[in-house]
Design a protein around this nucleic acid. Sequence first.
DNA 1: CTGCTTCTTGAAAGGAGTTTTCAGTAACGG
DNA 2: CCGTTACTGAAAACTCCTTTCAAGAAGCAG
Lengths: 163, 163
Amino acid sequence: MLSEERILRQLSQAGYRITQPRRAVVRALLEDDGYSNAAKVHERARLYCPGVGLVTIYRTLDLLSEAGFLRRIHSQDGCHGYAPIQRGHRHHLICRRCGAAVEFKGCDLVPFLDRVSDETGYRIEEHLLELIGLCSTCQELSTPCPHSQEPSPRSTPGHDDEK
Amino acid sequence: MLSEERILRQLSQAGYRITQPRRAVVRALLEDDGYSNAAKVHERARLYCPGVGLVTIYRTLDLLSEAGFLRRIHSQDGCHGYAPIQRGHRHHLICRRCGAAVEFKGCDLVPFLDRVSDETGYRIEEHLLELIGLCSTCQELSTPCPHSQEPSPRSTPGHDDEK
DNA sequence: CTGCTTCTTGAAAGGAGTTTTCAGTAACGG
DNA sequence: CCGTTACTGAAAACTCCTTTCAAGAAGCAG
């Protein structure tokens, strides 16, 4: 697991200056359960560097992302979350009806990834797996999403194969 | 594979009206290699329905997504792409340096998905797997990304584990 | 086929989130 | 401690997306 010190040291070695805002962002990221977005990082970073601006958050996130300490991730609703690398795989299981998201760790993908790596020549460093389905509640209730434009309850098209 | 006719028929059965803009969007989506974003869909949909506005594209994409014909997906740089469902699994292997993306089909995830499904109670209908790494070219060259703010060539931090 | 209802559309305005610009500030080598 | 210059914060600009609302057309009834 990457520590604040190690990240800062590597940034410094790479020629970047170690500033209060950057310290604050790194600390905020590591503390925030390894899963954040710009606004959350900003809020938390201000605890350590009160005057830090949102712009600097974005710049630092870019920097860390570019330097390989951070990965942009994407959730179904919003966009551009960030997560530190090497925090273990973090997978998302999202209900397509109610949007409920479950996270879980651990997966059996290694053999598969090895095979893909062999076939493509890519060195695979990270993977992001998003599972989409119906949570148990939505399976039972089959209630339509509370959606503004829905004129009437609609049946979701089944995924029965049509040949 | 879902056809234009089938999608439109199911929309109609669900109570939605079949309009020229909706036809155009469905056609555009299916033609665009099953992988698009709002702007691209708009551009292509105008071939079939010249006056169609971007707003309608968004609404129709939402509609199709809501109805289960479409899934929002996310690429590393931009956001909110769309892909028709039932096109077979489509996995993305993205180089974090040069951005080169490879798509490949087929995967061995079924046992894993079954296990997750058991553990969480979710009925998993779709999955999206994004692999991130270095393509063979970038592995060899190790050339720095052409990035504006880079004051000097930087070494990407190795992913050697630090305990 | 004709007319009516209301779902759907397009344009414009609005809004959230992100990036650019630029003068001032502070990190860090000397 | 000083000077260079990378970095920062504020404001403005930009992009992408959503909301609003009057006008238009899909589909049903007759």
